[in-house]
Structure formats: structure tokens, C-alpha cells
Simulated scan of single mutants.
Amino acid sequence: MDGKLKLSALDADDLGVISAAVQDSLVAVRDCAFFAAENRFVLLLNRFRWEADATVETAYWRTHSALVFNAVQAVHHHKIPLQEPDRVLELLALGMEGAGTVVLRFAADRAIRLEIDRLACHLGDVGEPWPTPWKPAHPAE
């Protein structure tokens, strides 16, 4: 088993690496939080371990991860069901839109837009990974 993933992003290229690592993560609405006094936005993810080699390992793996954005000034939601804290969202991608905006894109045309002073993003695995028989799949368009 590989070690825990720990990544930081300070520019759009770095964020692309983190985006690939968190693709198909699951996150409950209640596990997305903006700490305005700290200018911090945090998501607690159930992350599919794309980096684990399924040809060597006996199963696919998931792990809990924390995705943290610092220097956040504002958070805007698009179709995020804030009134349904137990609703699970599927994170598809992260990306920069201009110098001061990060967009987190979810399935079902949902999104969270972060207004930032600068990009300061960190991803870290927490706890131990567990096996799963399911690998996320995306139908061809």
C-alpha cells in the first residue's frame, strides 16, 4: 500500500494535479464548510485513490481526505442543496477561473465558486484506506 497523499497547490498547474487526485470524491453537504474568520474553506472527502496500482493491489481503494483552501474571501454555491446536509455530492474537478476564482465542479451541474486572494490549497489523506470493489466510471459522451 502506498503512503498517504499530501499535496499543495500554489498555481493552476498544481491545482490540476490535485484535481486529478480528487476526481470522483464523495462529499456530504455538511462536510463543506467556510470558516470566514480564518478565510478558509474545507471539504472532508471520501476520495477514490486513483494513484493506487490496481494491478498490484487486490482491490480499488478509498480514503478520507481533507481539501483545504486558504485566503478565501467569499463562497458562492450553484445548485448545492444546503438544506439537505446529508446529500452526498460527487466532485468531478477543480479549476481556476481567472486569477481570483477557484471553481469546484460536481455532478448534476452543481458548483462551488471560491473568491480567493491567492491560491493556497492543500490536500491530505487522513486515517487508513479501505478496499472497495467499485471503480468510478464515466459514460462516453
Rank of each mutant, 00 (worst) to 15 (best):
V29P: 03
V29Q: 05
R30M: 12
R30H: 12
C32H: 01
C32F: 04
A33F: 00
F35H: 08
F35T: 01
A36G: 04
A37Q: 06
E38D: 12
E38A: 06
N39W: 04
R40M: 02
F41D: 05
F41M: 02
V42I: 00
V42D: 01
L43I: 01
L43H: 02
L44Q: 05
L44G: 08
L44N: 08
L45C: 06
L45Q: 03
N46F: 00
R47A: 01
R47G: 02
R47P: 08
F48D: 08
R49L: 14
R49C: 15
W50M: 00
W50L: 03
W50S: 02
E51P: 00
E51V: 01
D53Q: 08
A54G: 09
A54L: 15
T55K: 14
E57M: 03
E57G: 02
A59K: 10
Y60L: 04
W61F: 11
R62W: 05
T63S: 15
T63E: 14
S65I: 04
S65D: 06
A66T: 14
A66H: 14
N70W: 00
A71K: 10
A71F: 08
Q73C: 14
V75H: 04
V75D: 03
V75A: 07
H76W: 13
H76N: 15
H76R: 15
H77A: 04
K79W: 03
I80A: 06
I80F: 13
I80D: 06
L82F: 12
L82V: 12
L82S: 15
L82Q: 15
Q83N: 14
Q83H: 11
Q83D: 13
E84V: 10
P85C: 09
D86R: 10
V88E: 11
L89V: 00
L89T: 00
L91T: 02
L91H: 05
A93I: 05
A93E: 07
L94Q: 06
G95A: 11
M96N: 13
M96R: 11
M96S: 13
E97Q: 14
E97C: 11
G98W: 08
A99N: 00
G100L: 03
G100N: 09
T101H: 07
V103L: 00
V103I: 02
L104R: 01
L104P: 02
R105S: 05
R105W: 00
A108Y: 07
R110D: 12
R110N: 13
I112Q: 10
I112G: 05
R113T: 15
L114P: 10
I116P: 04
I116S: 07
D117E: 15
A120W: 05
A120M: 08
C121M: 02
H122Q: 03
H122G: 04
G124L: 05
G124Q: 09
G124W: 03
D125C: 13
D125N: 01
D125H: 05
V126E: 12
V126R: 12
V126C: 06
E128Q: 11
E128F: 11
P129L: 11
W130E: 01
P131N: 10
P131Y: 08
T132Q: 12
K135E: 09
K135A: 02
K135Q: 08
A137H: 09
H138W: 15
H138C: 12
